[in-house]
Write a protein that binds this DNA or RNA. Structure first.
Lengths: 366, 366
DNA sequence: GACCATTGTGTTATCGTTAACGCAAAAGGA
DNA sequence: TCCTTTTGCGTTAACGATAACACAATGGTC
């Protein structure tokens, strides 16, 4: 393999010291324009590529971020990751991908590896509720940010920024929609218990029950784990009841799709005999033949925002107040599986969400 | 932020030189077992984490690979990426994600960046046919591997390994299936012209025409670009013909889905009045309400294999013959959109593909 | 013209590792 | 016992960049 060209090679050719070359390349002051031009042209001629490793060693900056994700084999995370990667690139950063399969030990190992490799910060897209790894990083003050899922741990809330969708509002919108369509018996399928988002979506749903004074029945809540199968099983349980719900809100689209399948298998018609709402608006939900009503969120923008906030934190030093929370507005997307026949309704529902996002006060403004 | 612990700190505590610490940590010879134990226990106690940046600077190895992909917002690439990332991690490597949006300039910039950051090798998942960036790397001898799409450039074929599915066979299987179902008028929708896979799939289809002596009609071939919309437009063109095809083979699933939509909009029934086959078997194709007949390929395994081959190349030095080609066997997956009513047929078709993959002879065995 | 600030450049240290080399002490062989 | 080899360390030099400091040469001010 060819020998790498270093600043010393350039220095030799330009008859200057390597420091001068460094100054020229980094556009520093205290250098004559003429010398700079000469050096730069030689660099260009030799097709010089700076060695980031050497630079990182002395600067203690790598322009690289870690992205910790349960699995990218899930369109929701994929879109998020796309937003993250694209934005990072725009800011001059690269992304190291880490898929943990939701295993805390994997996560720990990835974190150690990322830190060994000197990443400037880490983005967590699927924090578990009491995640000890994240707590440790937060306590230490290492630059991280949470997207999508969060942790309610006080230290994390105090020192780590978060960006996500307003899941409580989303859950509320989903159930409100069903209520407005006249449903009184509404089944809900929860997400996995270690995730904040499932919890919040259910909370939002319950709040809608209260607002519209619908009776809350325990048997109409089943637990899920965000996977299709659990949605399938949940729906089956509902369908077998003496008095089954007339509508189901699944706290994510995969479970909604599982429910969809269970419902069809029972010969029950969607939406006539059973309404269905999901959450996330991942790609397949809009496809001909499925057309799931769901709660949409701006996944790409969410990822983009997270990167921007993290980079600002990394580059801006410690001065910024931490513990900021950005909640993006969710949007009700009405399709075939419930409410699509209602004209005008859709427009109405869109109008309500003109605001793009709310930034809550930093917890420690001082 | 806390000060980093270095081998010098350990050295001081253990009353040895830092070199000795390095020897202990790297399990080198020429060190007393006793000293080694002592050093290791101190390292553990201090929770020492090695600095990969410093190590990389001297070793010229980063244990990091670049993954160049058009976009991960496509379930096909996502599964591939998952296989790549998981396998890389198992081998002690990290992955830097680069999504080029199929733009050669982006690709070039990413490659420069990756090399500046010292990656040990690069995986290309979506090489364009005459990709100059890849040619340049191949000529220079930089360790790369192509997965999925390839280049027919002689230098690349000679010096770069490739792993992909046997697309020609896949195309053949798709069309053969339609022929066996009795179709004589079969429309094909091609992929984007800068991709090898679309081309090969069409070739396979044409070969099936020849084998079964079906008349090839020019108007039954339309170009596409692998996106849904182009499948939609292609199918519309077919449907408007005086004598439309009775079956369509789209060279990927997204286009098949676009076609699906166009067909339904015309009120034509699937599969009774129009059969449909796709390619890739991405997740949504199996979903209730879609159930697309398609050609499946082992995406995860493909990615895994690519990483293994690249790492072998990187670690094994220059001794291995290059230009190896691994072609995985595609599999016909019969679902609702054509042929599912034929009992026994499915089993028959599966039986044919017992072999897992073929490794072609290295082109330069010497 | 004397004095001080600014500019342009080189010298040397530094980041945290591994690697080459040196050298005494221990071990082995005759 | 003497010589040679091996073992167990330490010393010093890389790797390729930035940064602190030194120091002439220039420029501006009075």
């Amino acid at each position: 393999m060819k020998k790498r060209i270093t600043i010393k090679d350039i220095a030799r050719m330009a008859n200057v010291s390597h420091t001068t070359v460094s100054r020229a390349l980094n556009n520093k002051s205290r250098i004559r324009t003429e010398t700079k031009e000469r050096i730069l042209s030689i660099a260009r001629e030799l097709n010089y590529q700076p060695d980031f490793i050497a630079r990182s060693l002395v600067m203690r900056r790598t322009k690289t971020l870690g992205l910790v994700i349960t699995t990218i084999a899930n369109p929701f995370y994929t879109e998020l990751a796309q937003g993250i990667e694209t934005t990072a690139r725009g800011l001059g950063y690269n992304i190291i991908l880490c898929s943990t399969q939701n295993d805390l030990l994997n996560e720990k190992q990835y974190i150690d590896m990322l830190r060994s490799k000197g990443v400037d910060g880490i983005i967590f897209t699927s924090a578990q509720l009491g995640d000890p790894n994240i707590c440790a990083l937060a306590e230490e003050g290492f630059p991280i940010i949470l997207v999508n899922r969060r942790t309610y741990h006080p230290v994390v809330k105090e020192r780590v920024d978060y960006v996500g969708v307003d899941n409580t509002l989303g859950g509320f919108l989903a159930v409100e929609h069903l209520v407005r369509l006249g449903h009184k018996r509404i089944g809900m399928i929860g997400g996995s218990s270690e995730s904040s988002v499932g919890f919040e979506r259910l909370e939002g749903g319950k709040r809608a029950f209260e607002t519209y004074q619908i009776e809350k029945r325990d048997e109409y809540f089943v637990e899920g784990d965000f996977l299709k199968e659990s949605g399938y099983q949940g729906a089956r349980r509902f369908l077998k009841m003496a008095e089954p719900p007339t509508a189901i809100f699944a706290t994510n689209d995969y479970m909604a799709l599982g429910a969809y399948q269970a419902i069809l298998e029972e010969g029950v018609k969607i939406p006539e005999e059973m309404a269905l709402v999901g959450f996330n608006d991942i790609e397949f939900t809009s496809m001909k033949g499925i057309e799931l009503t769901t709660i949409g969120q701006k996944k790409f923008e969410m990822g983009a925002l997270a990167v921007k906030m993290l980079v600002e934190r990394v580059e801006g030093g410690e001065m910024k107040p931490l513990g900021k929370e950005v909640l993006l507005k969710p949007e009700l997307i009405i399709r075939r599986t419930c409410g699509f026949h209602l004209k005008g309704y859709q427009i109405d529902s869109r109008k309500r969400h003109g605001v793009n996002h709310i930034i809550s006060e930093a917890r420690h403004p001082k």
